[in-house]
Design a protein around this nucleic acid. Sequence first.
DNA 1: CAGCTGCGTAACCGGTTTGTCACCGCCCTG
DNA 2: CAGGGCGGTGACAAACCGGTTACGCAGCTG
Lengths: 223, 223
Amino acid sequence: MKVLIADDDAELRALIAFTLGQAGYLVIKASDGHAAVRLFEAEAPDLVVLDINMPGLSGFQVCEAIRARSRVPVMMLTVRGEEEDLVRALGLGADDYLTKPFSPRTLLARLRALLRRAGMESSPPLAVGRLTLDLAEHTVRIGAAETVRLTKLELRLLQMLLANAGHTVSSERLLMQVWGHRSGGDRQLLKQLVHRLRQKIEADPAAPALLQTAAAGYKLVVD
Amino acid sequence: MKVLIADDDAELRALIAFTLGQAGYLVIKASDGHAAVRLFEAEAPDLVVLDINMPGLSGFQVCEAIRARSRVPVMMLTVRGEEEDLVRALGLGADDYLTKPFSPRTLLARLRALLRRAGMESSPPLAVGRLTLDLAEHTVRIGAAETVRLTKLELRLLQMLLANAGHTVSSERLLMQVWGHRSGGDRQLLKQLVHRLRQKIEADPAAPALLQTAAAGYKLVVD
DNA sequence: CAGCTGCGTAACCGGTTTGTCACCGCCCTG
DNA sequence: CAGGGCGGTGACAAACCGGTTACGCAGCTG
């Protein structure tokens, strides 16, 4: 699931990106309206989060440009009390909005509600490097090879790693994201799950090329 | 267009009723949760506006009761800063919410956006591939074969699958769309319904050609 | 009232998935 | 060099999942 974030406030952008990244979304960032439109066309995100006040094109203009060619869900960010903005944004085809300041949790809840409404079926499989992950079908394809069926947990694990492709993800975080809670002791589970996943996706499971062990965690290596 | 408003604040209720009345909606009012549920059943409104804090049943409980039997759009009203409430409301199946205080204009804009969205979804193609679904008659025809009578639930299930023909629809989503239930243990129901539907529409129910099991859900296969 | 239909519930079966345990080899350190 | 920590591996049992059969209950209808 690819999300485009457009906001000129670098700090807020980073916060949102971090939150969504944690939740398993792939995040693309833009710091002004022109970049947002460009990235939208280049990356075809599944959801767009737009600040209204931006240098260059305003959020309104970006929203309009997006709506001219796509019905992708758009969430607008506004400052409190600018009611005119809301009416205008919704009129332009935005699907929802958030008033700053907001908490990450609220953002996530609203965003999920939006995606649920939009029908997640339309989400194209997310691809990074040679890996193509199809969330709906629970499958991966590696390069041009056969597609492989994954179980629920394997899918979640791979999704997390893919969302942070190239970077190490700590065991603790994986444990948290895949199983939801659980205290420290359960390294064994992760060990097993990684093992099972490697059996499925690695050409030579004994010498992992994709899912590599890193200090205190694992990382996905893509070209 | 009939709208049910449930709020214990008489003044706010009147304001909303006036606003919506002006805008051409037919308004029904309830001052507590029990009345809301009763009126909902008696009047079958097209949209519901629910305050969370009400004597008798809370907005949550009313929302739950409504979702148990209908997919009508629900908008919740909350007081500012009760973030827990928002998350919970959206989790219960509410479609949108407003934070008090809000202006009539905002309410109207959000409400229209909601109806627009709900309205969009009411245009599923009736015929896809070899399948022809007749919503009014509660029947399907497969290819040139006999038409088959479907029950209400079977029809809804098939309608959902048809709307996403060729793509997997998750069990959770189906559960939600067909019964209105919040996701939970009720996989049994879906299992049964799928079984019964297969008996009716599959040439060989033991080897489904149309309604296939997919990872974490089902999909309709059309040529 | 008897029978039918629609639908929720329970129980069972076989296959898959997941959790657990035991053991291995490697590296690090005392 | 012995021992402990850590990741990888294989084996096995428990839990889960989808399909199926069976039953119960409510509402309708002749």
